[in-house]
Amino acid sequence: MKDIFVLLKKGSMASLTAAIVNFILAGLKGAAFLLTANVAMFAEMMHSLGDAINQVFVFIGSSLSKKAPTERFPFGFGRLVNLVCLFAIVIVGILSYETLMEGIHHIIEPLPVNPDTTMLLINIGVLAVAAVLESFVLYKAGKELLQQAEQPHDGIKPLTLSFKHMNRAKPATKLVFLEDTVATLGAVLAIIAILIGRFTGFAQSEGIASVLIGLMMFYIVYKVFMENAAGVLGESDPHMEQRISQIVLRHDDIKDIQKLFVLKEGDALHVEVVAEVSPDLTVDYTNELRDKIEALILKQSHVADVNMEFEVDDGNRSWPKTQDQLDTKSRQKERF
């Protein structure tokens, strides 16, 4: 039991915070829906509930992924967070479908607009609270994301630069950031739909908002599924490969890199390097050189272990990869 608590302390705090906030918001929105029968509020309730469930799974998965390697699993449990996210996203997919169908139903058969000002204030008040809390979680997740990407994170940068550096963040942090972006937009969208319906009489506005929120939730389902499917299969990190190649080739005794790949295992990175050196170097010197380079690589963000080997220089240049190759690899990864 003690070991479990130790592991839980290592889990993603962004996921835990987001889960607590979303459970609270789901309860508030559910109560408001029961009082007002507002369709946009129903969509928001489902969205918050889906986010909360998803983030609980992500927190647990990110905690268990920190478990130390065993004899049976020598590479550790890093990919466990990806498997847990894949399971959780099925639940979010079901909730997304229900939200979408509910919205379509109320577009076809809209309910009469409730003229009660009290009901209007309840809906707007709950959604305003939701928007503020979700914005707070979004800011915290954006700040954590930029820290992991080794970027400046002061001022409003967590809300402006995070999208640009999202691929450098840990899976759990990235998921929280995406979900809270959609959650914040969804709350604002629901407020707009309620006001349109109340003051113009266009009753379908709430159904349209529900459909849009459902579609945004489906985008999260797609994004999270593809990201974590790649993680389960084992994806490389081209940007870190480029950085590590610069560290290796910085030494004059390294003539070329024959092979270099960086494999993601959850939050951790595993590095494999085969470098070419001059044949006149002694064994003792190459061992010292290897230890020195491995120590520098291990200082890089998220790198868990390094395996470096040497081969005699064959006279053929294999590295560096051209920038076009690296850009193509990055684009293929983003499309996947």
Rank of each mutant, 00 (worst) to 15 (best):
T328I: 03
T181A: 10
L95K: 12
G142T: 04
P69W: 02
M101F: 10
A183M: 12
L8S: 01
L138I: 06
V277Q: 02
L189Q: 07
E134Q: 15
V132H: 09
G76M: 08
A14G: 09
I254W: 06
V6L: 15
L215I: 12
N307P: 03
G266W: 05
I192G: 01
A18G: 15
T36M: 05
E144I: 14
Y219G: 11
L133N: 09
V211K: 05
V113L: 11
L121F: 07
E179P: 01
S135Y: 10
A130G: 15
Q148A: 02
L178H: 07
G103C: 07
D256T: 07
F163Y: 11
P69A: 05
P152Q: 05
T181H: 02
H165K: 12
V188S: 02
T70Y: 11
N123T: 14
S301I: 10
E241F: 12
I24L: 14
P115G: 14
V6W: 04
E150F: 00
F77H: 14
L86C: 10
L64C: 00
I60H: 01
L178N: 10
D291Y: 06
E272C: 04
G50D: 00
L34V: 02
T286V: 14
S162F: 11
L260C: 03
V129G: 10
A295Q: 12
M240D: 02
E150M: 07
F177M: 15
L127N: 14
F225Y: 01
V303Q: 05
V6G: 15
D116C: 04
L95G: 13
F218R: 03
A268T: 03
L195V: 03
L175R: 09
A26N: 02
F199K: 09
L86E: 02
Y219I: 04
A169T: 08
D116H: 03
I293R: 11
D267L: 02
M308Q: 01
R243L: 12
G142W: 12
K223Y: 01
V303A: 06
I254M: 10
T328C: 02
N307Y: 09
V113T: 11
I208T: 09
